[in-house]
Structure formats: C-alpha cells, structure tokens
Design a protein around this nucleic acid. Sequence first.
DNA 1: TGCATATATTCCCATATCGGAATATAATAA
DNA 2: TTATTATATTCCGATATGGGAATATATGCA
Lengths: 110, 110
Amino acid sequence: MARTPTTHDPFNAVAEPKRRRILEALGAEERSVNEIVKKLGWTQPMVSKHLGVLKQVGLVSERRVGRQRMYRVNAQRLRPIYDWVTPFERYWSENFDRLDEVLQELKKEK
Amino acid sequence: MARTPTTHDPFNAVAEPKRRRILEALGAEERSVNEIVKKLGWTQPMVSKHLGVLKQVGLVSERRVGRQRMYRVNAQRLRPIYDWVTPFERYWSENFDRLDEVLQELKKEK
DNA sequence: TGCATATATTCCCATATCGGAATATAATAA
DNA sequence: TTATTATATTCCGATATGGGAATATATGCA
C-alpha cells in the first residue's frame, strides 16, 4: 500500500495546496472553469484536473451549462475536517491556558 | 514534482488517517511510544515512523526520559487547518440556511 | 458542414509514500 | 560485561502523485 489516494477522502484531497486555493476561489459562488483559470492564472488542464479530484471526493459539484461547466463548493464535505480539528482548538485557546494557570495555582497552594 | 511531501505541512501530515489517530490518542496527555502502541494495537515501528513524520512537521514534540520518549501534541500547529476550514463553516451552518430562507422570502414578497 | 470555444483526458516521468521485516541504537539492570 | 527493554532506522516494493505537453471531446455558431 502506498499513500492514501487523494480521492479517498476530503483530508487527502485538501492536502494539496492548489486544491485549497480552488475551493477558496470558489467560495460561495458558482464559477466556470475559465473563470477559475483566469482568477488563479494557472493552465486550464491543471485546473480541470484538480477540479476532477475535488469532484470525485464530492468537495465540489458540477453543472453543465452549454459548453461551460459550473462548479460550486460542497461545503458540508469539509465538515469531517472541521469536526476533527475543532476539539483541538481548546488546547491552544485562552481557556486552556487558564486551566493550566489554575493547576499551577493549586500546586503552589500545596 | 510528485505529491507534496507529508512532512511539508500539517495538512499533508494529517491526511494520513493513522496519524490522526495518533494525535487523537495523545489528546492533551503526554505518552510514551509504548503506551501509544498498546493503545492502538499497531506495531512499534509503525507508530515510531508516524511519530517521526508528526515530529518533523512540528505536530508533536518529544522529550526523552530514560529510555522512553514522551510525546505530546503541539496543538497550535493544527491551527492553520482550523483557520482554513472554519470560514466554510458558515456555508453549512444554520445561519447560512436562514440567510437563504430570507432571500427566498424576499423573492416571494416581490 | 466546418470552425471556434470550453473543458476533459491521455501519456510521460521523477518522486514519495506506507507497510513489513529485519536490524540498529540507546539506556538500564544484573 | 552481558542481557533486556524502549525506540528508531534501513531496506524493500507496489502504488499514486502532479505537472507539462499534446490531444480528445463536446457544444455552439456561421
């Protein structure tokens, strides 16, 4: 077995920086391939290929309009990432620091 | 150029499910390699190798105690992931749905 | 039909990957 | 010193990657 395929899950798909850029570029909008190409300044095949991966993983959905393909972010597919990382937020948050301070205080009191 | 190396950034390091499991297993605690091995039921070299990647990326830090190596999560290194994914949260959240409803209402009123 | 536009696909290759097995290193104990 | 414990490293192979260049497909238009 090699590395987990990029199309296996959102974590792997989004590990590639260019795919993150594409999702950012889309935002809440629906955009054609060429719009993304122009916005990011990459080659068209490059954008298409990354969109292909994002589509396979379900991170974007595609709609055909004439000869254009309109893409939009499927945000809920990012939720596993959000849900996984969020619990760690407390480790760097202010509250966690305070908890640490409290523990230090308790030690001193002893 | 092939795929971005796993040691390049937190996104890539965490794309591997087993490395996510290790971070989960650590949580807020400091644990030795063997504790993780027992907790997860994997082989020791496997755990060590994944810890090696996590350490290179800075997602864990290591402290030597006798012949043991104690590892702990470096949570703030997960922050780039949190920061990147959080803005998308609004696209699936209740508030965003409500905004959509409001827009629908406005259309009907016309 | 024939041409232009919009997008996808194929071919190629250098590069890392993850896992397993075996082995190396380091620290402690007898 | 020698044995044992704790952990890291090396070697291997099958596999997928992302980029570039060229090409295919598909739709619309004259």
